[in-house]
Computed example of a mutant assay.
Amino acid sequence: MSRNVALRPRYPLRTARLLLRPSTPDDADAMLAYKARPDVVRWVPHGVLDRAGVLDRIERSRGELDDEEQTLGLAVIEADSGTLVGDVLLTWTSREHGGGEVGYVFDPAVAGRGYATEAARELLRLGFDEFGLHRIVARIYARNGASARVLQRLGLRREAYFVRNELLRGEWTDEIVYALLADEWAARRCR
């Protein structure tokens, strides 16, 4: 798949209960409230962040994609309250292969409400329907059961299990790769 296009969504993206829009420096304090917590970022490669780290990640994220290896970084806002509840990522991993990857981190104050599933579903829609990706993956650490359940609810298939694949804060951890193809996404939407 050789593409010469860009993904420039019209913001905010709206789901039933959420608004997704590019992260800005004004989001730093709200993101810091959960990204500075070891229990929240236990399974996130970057680990605990301070304010400068949050600002750096916001600065490196983008609101559009025009080349591979770029990441769309979106703040997730609860529509009713206007509260930032998490953030999500869509990375364009390969132009040639039409590949993408999704990721998400949410404030534990909203755990159990289905927000991660709802926001990640919108990223899948964006990647497949608007950007025309062929395949989207999510990589998680094997002990992250909550994230595995989100991916399974979204219909992603567990494709690979890598034993002691990643060194995470001094400990070898197993990694699981989940994936979904564009035609599988289309078939799920038609049901």
Rank of each mutant, 00 (worst) to 15 (best):
T71N: 07
D87Y: 14
D67N: 08
V110F: 14
G112I: 12
E78F: 02
Y104R: 06
L133G: 09
V88D: 09
E122D: 10
D80S: 15
G127S: 08
A138M: 04
A75M: 02
G114V: 07
G86L: 15
R125E: 09
G98V: 02
Y104F: 12
E96G: 10
H97W: 09
G98N: 02
G98Q: 01
L154A: 00
L154H: 00
L151S: 06
G63T: 03
V40F: 12
V54S: 04
T173R: 10
G73T: 12
G100V: 07
L156C: 00
L84W: 00
G114F: 10
Y115G: 05
E118M: 15
R169D: 14
S61V: 07
E78T: 05
V137L: 07
R164N: 09
L49A: 10
R139I: 14
G155A: 01
A142I: 05
R57W: 15
I176T: 05
L126A: 07
D50N: 14
R57K: 11
E166M: 15
L156G: 00
R157S: 03
I136A: 04
V44D: 10
D174H: 08
V54C: 06
D67K: 10
G86P: 12
E159M: 03
E171R: 14
A119G: 07
L84P: 00
Y161T: 12
Y115C: 08
E64A: 15
W43L: 06
R135E: 00
D80E: 15
G103V: 08
Y141P: 05
P108G: 13
P45C: 06
A146D: 14
E96D: 14
L156A: 00
D39I: 06
N144E: 06
R139C: 10
H97Q: 14
V54I: 11
N165A: 14
E166C: 10
G86V: 07
E96Y: 05
L156I: 00
D107I: 08
G82Y: 00
G98W: 01
A160S: 10
N165V: 03
F128D: 02
A148C: 14
G112C: 09
W92A: 07
I58G: 03
A111E: 15
R164G: 05
S81P: 02
L90R: 02
F106E: 11
L156M: 02
Y115M: 14
G86A: 11
R143W: 11
F162T: 07
R60Q: 14
F128S: 06
R153T: 09
N144Q: 05
A138L: 04
G73M: 09
Y161C: 14
E166G: 11
G98P: 02
Y141T: 09
R158N: 03
W172H: 06
G155P: 00
V163K: 15
D107C: 09
F131P: 03
N144W: 12
G53P: 04
T91N: 11
P108F: 13
R139L: 09
E59T: 13
E78V: 04
E101V: 08
I58N: 03
G73Y: 12
H97E: 08
G86H: 13
L84D: 00
H46C: 08
L154Y: 00
L74D: 03
R139T: 08
V41N: 06
